[in-house]
Design a protein around this nucleic acid. Structure first.
Lengths: 230, 230
DNA sequence: ATTTTTTTTTGATTTATATCAATTTTTATC
DNA sequence: GATAAAAATTGATATAAATCAAAAAAAAAT
């Protein structure tokens, strides 16, 4: 039970390569029919429950993918550029977005017609297989997140997210974090006040340093241990 | 936010039809190479972390699919006959079972070589597409379950499971439930004692009746309301 | 520069739920 | 049928974490 994949980490790390499997003709089909859109920070890219006519490819920016709840949202994943959104809509008798996606920062997406997408899957099995792999990569991540939300407690979950952001988005121990405490709360499934308190614990214990929105992870080893123990 | 799909329900209801997409030759390939095994109640069918050389098709019985945790397990789904297990192993650089599957009752499975399975996906895109649909059906369910575990509290979750078992497995309001309170606890992510207490609440409020392992749902409407409100 | 709004922080209280401990009931075994 | 083992129940207690309320700090708007 020290599974690398069982962590709260939310950031997809599979840059999507499924388009590599297409022929030049097929790729041209997408290129000529796709629609490119830009979104400002905070705008909704796809709305849970709305008709899903397109698969969404995130070209630039950062997206938040989440289930909308009565009281609070459940963030499923943070999607960096190079990834597809809306794939789970490829599902019998269902052409509806299962989740809402919104932009964390200014973003740019390509919309690919879902019927064209289906057609490509049916005519190119390599492409289909690569979609299968992508879906499974997502599933692995969701399982890990699910496990953490139900098994780890606050300190573990927050350590997870800090490590995840540091490693998967910024690639360094010291970075500028544009998220509010409320964002972190949403991400870790805890209350804003609890985020503040746990952050304070981490600071008091010398695990992290913060100055405004700048954050530095000082004791990575200990953070990992906390993440692991839960 | 009164989504039919957002419930704790754990039972897969998509009887797998992907084999219908195969040609006779392809089906024969599977038939001749498959290995059939039987498992007694409680035995482990696939072990999380072990080498996944096969995709598992459940022919008879009922399987519990779960992540093994340090202290407690997280049940991902209850799989009735006609479904595949181990599909998420089709994932780059990964030939390891992501979850453990064990039999709730005496069960029978077919093991299909994973390399053959991959070959069929790559040579038959209709088959591949049907696998995609199956994976997505699973994802929808996992999302719903994830939402409930993090948003609903005990009464809602238990109401969910009772309704789910009644509707999806037994197809009637009155049934023999072979699960212990500890099983129900595992299924709903609560402690055994809490299951007992909530069941008592339901009985006191005239929502259900129990006699030994027999259980009858009396006030379905109210149970649904509890499930919905959380 | 001042006001307004948003975000962060802190302390006190409440709540849901787990845990612990003990007892009763049911089921299985010899 | 007696004994052992497993499961269900009950009550008391502990705990993690949310909520509530209020103040301080920071950011944005005028």
């Amino acid at each position: 039970m020290s599974e690398t994949y069982l962590n709260t980490c939310t950031v997809l790390d599979n840059t999507n390569s499924c388009f590599d499997e297409l022929t030049d003709d097929e790729r041209r089909l997408i290129e000529t029919s796709k629609v490119t859109l830009t979104y400002k920070k905070g705008e909704i890219i796809s709305k849970q429950g709305s008709f899903a006519s397109h698969i969404i490819y995130l070209k630039k920016g950062l997206a938040k993918v989440y289930l909308e709840g009565k009281s609070k949202n459940l963030i499923l994943t943070i999607t960096p550029p190079g990834n597809l959104m809306g794939l789970p809509c490829l599902y019998d008798g269902n052409n509806v977005f299962l989740y809402t996606a919104s932009s964390y920062v200014d973003s740019e997406v390509d919309l690919i017609d879902i019927e064209l997408f289906k057609k490509l899957i049916l005519q190119n099995s390599k492409f289909a297989f690569s979609i299968i792999k992508t879906l499974n990569a997502n599933t692995v991540q969701t399982y890990g997140r699910f496990y953490c939300f139900t098994n780890k407690q606050m300190h573990g979950r927050l350590a997870d997210i800090l490590l995840c952001l540091s490693q998967r988005i910024y690639g360094k121990d010291s970075f500028h974090l544009p998220l509010t405490r409320a964002d972190l709360a949403e991400l870790t499934g805890m209350s804003t006040e609890s985020v503040v308190r746990v952050m304070k614990d981490f600071k008091d214990d010398g695990l992290i340093k913060t100055e405004g929105k700048e954050i530095e992870l000082i004791n990575l080893e200990m953070l990992m241990k906390i993440s692991d123990v839960g």
